[in-house]
Design a binder for these strands. Structure first.
Lengths: 230, 230
DNA sequence: AATATTTATTGATCCATATCAATAGAAACA
DNA sequence: TGTTTCTATTGATATGGATCAATAAATATT
């Protein structure tokens, strides 16, 4: 890891939207102390339980955020993509990471000290407002995840995951997965075997086409129906 | 419902902690337009999917927050008590309630217009900071709920619920439940029958004493172990 | 107090999904 | 190019917890 790249935040094309409310001096202050890092696929960005000193802004790649458990399987509670940063509820509570972040693809990120972040929130109401909006969105995603996992069976849950991937990660009905089957399982709260069987059923029913990691949603309407009916 | 009571926010003993960072004028502004309401046990405070115009600050009683689902059972994602307010992630996103709030006991609450709330966040950085901290805590609770429900079996989940009730709601090892068995089930993501059987097992194993709605945690250490081991 | 209604409890059965096991395919490596 | 290693797939079996059904207890109603 740790191949440092650099441009300025002010001209950065992959800058997180959260920084749009900052003025040039504020952006420069962020730029001055930011650390740009490259992670290879599979590398840990941070571990659940460790102290959190930095906000992680993803500039390229894909990151999975998951809850670890000694006895049981992991559960992916979210994915982070450019142009976004990883939400960090511990930054305002116990200064610990609530989950582990791992790069699914080769990923570049900028680390921003949480002190600066806190200062910006105190001094720039628009930044604070945007930050609250992002936290709210994250809360809603968590609520949606609870709803999906507790109120739906395997097909409904897998439908939710495929819809989420196409709408929020790949922005297309057709995409090449960089998540493993195990990841899909962890994301939909089931075992790898169940995930594979659910996908196989969708393929048989012509709802998706599936060749290795190439997925195309052929019948989004039916997938939506399966999601709704659980 | 709607038995209006009144005192001033400035002298209120049941004022939510979130208002501690407000000055007298700000408190007075809140006081001027607040609406105090009484809800009987069982009454709906707001429904999932409806617009959210008010923050609800609980001054007495107990409120359950749950996700509704036509096909499936409800799932309680949290409880709200005095001195607290109900978090409302929709207030910054789609202006809709993400869940339903129902009074479990006779409950009084003050409704505060979200406009005023938004103004305070923009103008008072300490208020914004406290608000972000509260949202962060809520996110962590949601993450804990996901962890509990997906990574533990019935006994672990029920242990989590009992620990939560004693530590965060009743503040004692011994308490009289105002939640029904169905509520306990909805809170731990299982059926009423499974909830009753789990409690029965804990009673047989002398981990709790259970007479109707009177619960005492006799062996908190063992309960904690069950929670950890799932 | 007697009756109706809701909530709680217990037992029997069933089913969705996990677990286990075996194989196949893909990627890494020597 | 064969060997190892990891990931994916498929089938067989096991099981945790849901569902169904039948009281019992508590609460509300007349």
């Amino acid at each position: 890891m740790a191949k440092i790249i650099s441009t300025s935040c002010i001209v950065c094309q992959n800058r997180s939207d959260i920084f749009n409310s900052l003025g040039p001096e504020e952006l420069e202050a962020v730029n001055c102390q930011r650390i740009s890092v490259h992670y290879n696929a599979g590398e840990v960005i941070f571990k659940q339980g460790t102290p959190c000193y930095y906000f992680v802004c993803i500039t390229s790649g894909l990151v999975k955020l998951y809850l670890e458990n000694e006895n049981s399987h992991n559960i992916i509670i979210g994915l982070a993509r450019p142009v976004d940063y990883i939400f960090m509820p511990g930054a305002y509570v116990n200064y610990r990471h609530q989950f582990t972040a791992v790069a699914c693809e080769d990923t570049t990120a900028c680390l921003i000290e949480s002190d600066i972040w806190h200062d910006l929130i105190k001094t720039n109401p628009n930044f604070a407002n945007d930050f609250i909006r992002k936290m709210s969105l994250q809360s809603i995603e968590l609520i949606d995840k609870i709803s999906s996992i507790t109120q739906k069976q395997v097909f409904g849950r897998m439908a939710d995951v495929l819809i989420y991937l196409s709408k929020n990660i790949y922005f297309q009905d057709s995409f090449t997965l960089t998540l493993s089957r195990q990841d899909l399982a962890d994301f939909s709260g089931m075992t790898k075997e169940s995930a594979i069987r659910a996908m196989k059923k969708f393929k048989e029913d012509q709802i998706i086409s599936l060749k290795g990691n190439n997925i195309e949603i052929l019948n989004p309407f039916l997938l939506e129906t399966i999601s709704k009916n659980g």
